[in-house]
Simulated scan of single mutants.
Amino acid sequence: MSESQNIEYKESWRDEYLKWICGFANAQGGRIYIGIDDNQQVVGVADTKRLMEDIPNKIVNYLDIVADVNLLHKEDKDYIEIAVQPCNLPIAYHGIYHYRSGSTKQELKGAALQQFLLRKMGHSWDDIENERATLDDIDRQAIDFFLRKAVDAGRMPVDSLNETTEKVLSNLNLIGGEGKLRNAALLLFGKNPAKFFTSVQFRIGRFGRDEADLMFQDVVDGNIIQMTDRVIEVLKSKNDDPLNDPLNDPLNDPLKLSSLEKDILKLIVKDNQSTYDNLAISLSVSSATIKRAFRNLKVNGCIIRKGSKKIGYWMITEKGKSILK
């Protein structure tokens, strides 16, 4: 069996392998075989009596866990199996938390460590109580919006509309035992969630031929409860705009090209490495005008760029060729 998320082979024992045991305990558990090489060939270990005492003791002393350490035999050679069970509590080795991911050992730091510790303790990020927030940071309009939607949907009685902000948040389990607001309360109903959490926003964009061709982008921020309707409004406004209607998208109507754009296609046929400046001189227009024309040609799917900016070239698509016929 090859190395995997649950299997690791080591030719000989080193104390640093306690990190691997730590990683297995923090993940889904696993087995480390001492005396087997990466090709899964048994090479054997010496002084098995000492190792069978040292390894279990070091696991307990350094990691505070117990693992099964078994002495196995194959082809007249001894090797050791260390079977590690997943642990419900976070395990550290010399103050550092390790985690088994795939066939690698990861050292947890920063946000990854925070999420790991919360998960092991049975919490999630949105369940954490925010020490800086108060009820003044909650938008009552967002609460009312939520209550009206819930009443209209038949999920709550009409008299719920008169409940206090604190009562509503408490019923939703968004207030901790000491009256502190949880992060989820601020995300859902906060006046300004960005005050507490960076990058709390919803981005709506539209791309042209590829992910590098961003045609427009709208940013919707605020609390999640009100953000959803605002996102839908933005999407509707884009769909109602004929310039953004897929049925009228220039990708489906190549005949809308200007005479300048058609002339550019003809020049690309002659020299597909022409620069914006060279084309501008040839067509007696500005480079900015050429760039706008190229953007429209790309959006229409008439041309694509092959290679880098320095040594690449323009290629006319089948749609572009159909215009030149």
Rank of each mutant, 00 (worst) to 15 (best):
W20G: 14
G95T: 04
L279K: 08
P246Q: 01
L267Y: 05
V69P: 03
K167A: 13
G102W: 11
K270D: 11
N61D: 11
G301W: 05
E129T: 09
F189C: 12
K149V: 00
P246V: 04
A212R: 01
G179T: 02
M121V: 00
G44F: 07
I323N: 02
A133Y: 06
Y33N: 08
G154F: 07
K238H: 13
T165I: 14
Y313L: 10
L147P: 00
P254V: 15
K105S: 10
K167P: 00
M121W: 00
S103N: 14
K238D: 03
K321F: 14
D76K: 15
R209V: 05
K120H: 08
Q40A: 15
G222C: 05
L118G: 08
E16M: 01
E75R: 03
D271L: 01
L265G: 10
Q114S: 11
A112T: 08
R206M: 11
Q40C: 09
G35V: 03
K77N: 10
I204C: 07
Q40E: 15
T104V: 14
D127Y: 04
E129Y: 01
F146P: 02
L63P: 08
D127V: 03
V43M: 06
H73L: 13
S103L: 02
Q115H: 13
M215L: 15
A185N: 02
I225D: 06
R209C: 08
N272L: 05
V66A: 08
N223G: 07
I65E: 06
N252G: 07
R14N: 12
G222I: 05
K58S: 14
